[in-house]
């Protein structure tokens, strides 16, 4: 009996982690280029509502994924335009992207509140109730495997390819990169849109699988936890994934504590992820003593001094 519960916990952990990880990985790529995008929460929300609306109207789940990813990416290009091309404050622009994203998705999703999805994103195999670890691993939906693939490929791309080295160079020292002939603005623009696309995928995962209906503000702070995960992971894909699993585990565990005999107010249970995120950030900052691994140019607009 306890085994079934543990398997359920593991399954829920992976699902919660997938959602957080994809968004965090996207932000990692954006930040690697030296652009801070605090709009993750808004971008997830846009992807979530766009994917959900497409799924309801067309019942075509793959089109829904595509539309969700594209809309978030286009939405992120606002941030790219304002911060990369027009060199305005990244903190302000990102925050407003979150506010705008939440408002826009609520407006778009107004007529979809409470509607249930007919064609939910199902497991890739026929197993719907996994009973052992192997079954858990082979019974996730397609986005989970995409996430694993993205983790491996992002790590490889960052380390081994020219694009990855260029991205890192731009984020570390945009001025030198520019004098070496690298296209700083183009790299940053692409990285921001890629970050948006990833957040969109995370949003699609939210409404097509994790919680298959639409309500206002259903991202409930996950975008901000994703931002914290990038710091937690030290701007490294595998460590970020580890962090996502840890947070996913907590998100899955806390509501289950009651079944293990703990008496907890459900309202207090709800705030634990946020409390733990703050605690983890504090412990991490003390432990690393300032050397967080952040790209050196993050938040600094690139402007070519005319020579």
């Amino acid at each position: 009996m306890i085994d079934i519960q543990l398997i359920g916990l593991l399954n829920a952990t992976l699902q919660a982690a997938t959602l957080l990880f994809i968004a965090a990985l996207g932000e990692l790529i954006t930040e690697k280029s030296g652009i801070l995008n605090l709009g993750v929460e808004g971008m997830i929300s846009i992807g979530a509502v766009a994917g959900f609306m497409t799924a309801i109207n067309t019942e075509n789940i793959f089109l829904a994924i595509l539309i969700g990813v594209l809309s978030s990416s286009i939405f992120a290009s606002i941030h790219a335009l304002v911060t990369v091309v027009l060199k305005q404050d990244q903190t302000v622009s990102g925050l407003i992207l979150t506010i705008l994203g939440l408002a826009l998705s609520s407006l778009l999703g107004k007529n979809y509140v409470g509607r249930k999805l007919v064609t939910k994103l199902e497991s890739v195999t026929s197993i719907s109730e996994p009973t052992n670890i192997v079954e858990v691993l082979i019974s996730q939906n397609i986005i989970f495997y995409i996430a694993v693939l993205l983790m491996i490929s992002t790590s490889l791309i960052l380390k081994k390819t020219m694009f990855g080295r260029r991205l890192e160079a731009v984020g570390e020292d945009s001025k030198s990169s520019d004098s070496m002939g690298l296209k700083v603005a183009k790299t940053q623009f692409i990285a921001t849109c890629v970050g948006g696309a990833f957040a969109g995928l995370s949003g699609v995962y939210l409404t097509l699988s994790y919680v298959p209906y639409w309500t206002d503000n259903m991202t409930s702070g996950r975008g901000w936890i994703a931002l914290a995960l990038v710091i937690f992971g030290g701007w490294k894909p595998y460590r970020t994934a580890l962090g996502a699993v840890l947070f996913g585990f907590l998100e899955a565990l806390v509501p289950r504590l009651q079944t293990y005999g703990f008496e907890l107010s459900p309202y207090i249970v709800k705030i634990t992820p946020y409390v733990i995120t703050i605690l983890v950030l504090v412990i991490l900052t003390i432990y690393k003593g300032g050397k967080t691994g952040a790209p050196k140019n993050i938040g600094v607009p690139f402007f070519r001094e005319n020579r």
Partner: peptide, 16 residues
């Protein structure tokens, strides 16, 4: 005291 990013911590306190 520790230099923890205040943007994330102040935001998270909203949810708390």
């Amino acid at each position: 005291v520790f230099g923890v990013n205040e943007i994330i911590t102040t935001l998270l306190t909203n949810y708390i």
